[in-house]
Design a protein around this nucleic acid. Sequence first.
DNA 1: TGACAATGAGTGTTGTAACACTTAATATCG
DNA 2: CGATATTAAGTGTTACAACACTCATTGTCA
Lengths: 159, 159
Amino acid sequence: MAKPLKSLKEELKQNKPWRSLEEEAALNVARTSAVLEHALAQALKPFDITQTQYNVLRILRGAGDAGLCRNEVGARLIRRVPDVTRLLDRMEQMALIARVRGNDDRRYVSTHITAKGLAIVDRLDKEICAIHRQHLGHLDKAQLEQLVSLLTLARNGPD
Amino acid sequence: MAKPLKSLKEELKQNKPWRSLEEEAALNVARTSAVLEHALAQALKPFDITQTQYNVLRILRGAGDAGLCRNEVGARLIRRVPDVTRLLDRMEQMALIARVRGNDDRRYVSTHITAKGLAIVDRLDKEICAIHRQHLGHLDKAQLEQLVSLLTLARNGPD
DNA sequence: TGACAATGAGTGTTGTAACACTTAATATCG
DNA sequence: CGATATTAAGTGTTACAACACTCATTGTCA
């Protein structure tokens, strides 16, 4: 027998009907994201890094030896943050990343992941993977693909 | 002809394959949420309130004259925040809400929306509705329902 | 070639989020 | 009835987010 699913209205003890289906969808996206991000934040806490910092580490691991400049890092973050400079400052202080100012263009500062930073993301890979499976593993392949497809469609806008 | 949709990988200039479908789905949820929340934040800026504060105002509007205590407000927020007290403090200073300590149980403080707060949420209704339609209106009814259904299923977990 | 725009990084400041901890009032039970 | 737990709200502190602004270096073209 199918388990009765707890709707968002029940979750937030909301008893009024949604004003529109679009609103219901938007709130469901926000709520689901909040739940997933909370789980991620909990997993990162023992390592004393935030989700954004974890995101940066993964971006810089992907960038390899070439590294990336501040603006490129900022552009690849899932959530845009103003003040990438001090985000990187803090990570540099923690010795998770290193920065080198360019020689040909002295405005340019390339940012690299350090061995310490790399060790942390590598160490976290399995754990984060397990969290994703724990939270989304009960959806089958077709459902996950459909979810990705609907969200992609949503983000690509009406134009 | 169908417009080619921009995938998350293209959006974030990521060229590596996802490690799992679950991860791809989780990141798509997070990214979509970030985009929607950014749009909402922009709309709220002229009124000098944050998304969380807007969320509180809607909760308290829904609660009506009875109001809600601090913990109830916190429980109904889309994203959990520690320190609801000072969130409400700030809103009280802005005269958006009012608090009354209970007489029979003097621990209990009920929180109400003020006329000023009510005026702001009411004023915002149409605008927020338009934002939702702008961002999700190009999905048809079946797609939105499926999105809600998949997200609800995701949040309800494997157990 | 020299003024001026464009680009990349960084700073100052304020408010808010996150964490652990405390105080006050009521309920419970030996 | 008094010790103890429970429930509700609040406080102290640190670090981070958000906003507008500045500084330095390079590109461009009249």
